[in-house]
Each structure stands twice: as structure tokens, then as C-alpha cells.
């Protein structure tokens, strides 16, 4: 093999760079180990079962987004037959007004940064 030394050094540098985020978080020492979103609402029933919402709320939101903006359909009928307005800032956030403890809790853990709040105005949180 030609240039074996150079290739190995190159590979090591490459691996070091690729795994950088892991080293960086480890060195910082504050890797979150679990996420525990806090649900504070008087409402008993969500628009869909909790398990579905945990996994797929983003799909539901995308569906709502397209229905409202593109089809002009604004009312969602849940499996229970109950009707809801398809609205992030109303229906969703009226219950889950604690964005930092609810949305951000998991999003930070998963390292995702959804662009919802670039445009939709987040509810003012009551300082506790």
C-alpha cells in the first residue's frame, strides 16, 4: 500500500472530525439523558392519543398546516368525533402554553430545531 502512513493519519483526522459533536458534548458534561415534557392543562383529551402525539405530532402538524393553508380546511374531527380548530397557536398552545417545558424539553433532547416559532408567535409564559 502506498502512503499507508498518510492514509491512516487522514482517516484518524476524519473520524475525529466526524465524531466531534459527541466529544464536544461529552467534554461539556451536560448530556441530557431523558426528556420529560410537562403537561399542564385542565383539558382531559388531546386531538389524538398520547402515544400517537409523542411519535407523530410533527406529521399531524404538517397535515394541519397543509389543510389550513392550502385547502382552506380549518376544522379537524378527532377519532372521538370531537371537532377542533386546526391551529398551532390556538388549539395546541391553548393547552400547552408552557412551551419551554413542553415543546423545548423534547426538542432540545432530540437536538431538533423546528421552525414553527420563526413565524408563529409563542404564547407568553406565566412565570412560576
Amino acid at each position: 500500500m502506498y502512503d499507508a502512513g498518510k492514509i491512516i493519519i487522514g482517516l484518524v483526522v476524519f473520524l475525529a472530525l466526524v465524531s466531534y459533536p459527541i466529544w464536544y458534548d461529552a467534554a461539556r458534561g451536560d448530556i441530557p439523558t431523558s426528556a420529560d415534557p410537562k403537561i399542564v392543562t385542565a383539558e382531559k383529551e388531546c386531538v389524538a392519543p398520547t402515544d400517537y402525539m409523542k411519535d407523530s405530532h410533527m406529521d399531524l402538524l404538517n397535515q394541519w398546516r397543509d389543510d389550513v393553508v392550502r385547502k382552506g380546511v380549518r376544522v379537524y374531527t378527532a377519532e372521538s368525533g370531537r371537532k377542533f380548530e386546526m391551529s398551532l397557536s390556538h388549539t395546541c398552545m391553548d393547552c400547552h402554553s408552557n412551551k419551554s417545558e413542553f415543546c423545548d424539553e423534547c426538542h432540545n433532547y432530540a437536538g431538533v430545531n423546528p421552525y414553527c416559532w420563526d413565524c408563529h408567535i409563542e404564547p407568553e409564559e406565566v412565570q412560576q
Partner: peptide
């Protein structure tokens, strides 16, 4: 005067 009933744009 942000109106929370309507989104802003990015």
C-alpha cells in the same frame, strides 16, 4: 405590536 392570532414571516 405583534398580533398573536396571525403568524409573522421569516
Amino acid at each position: 405590536d405583534q398580533q398573536k392570532d396571525f403568524p409573522t414571516r421569516m
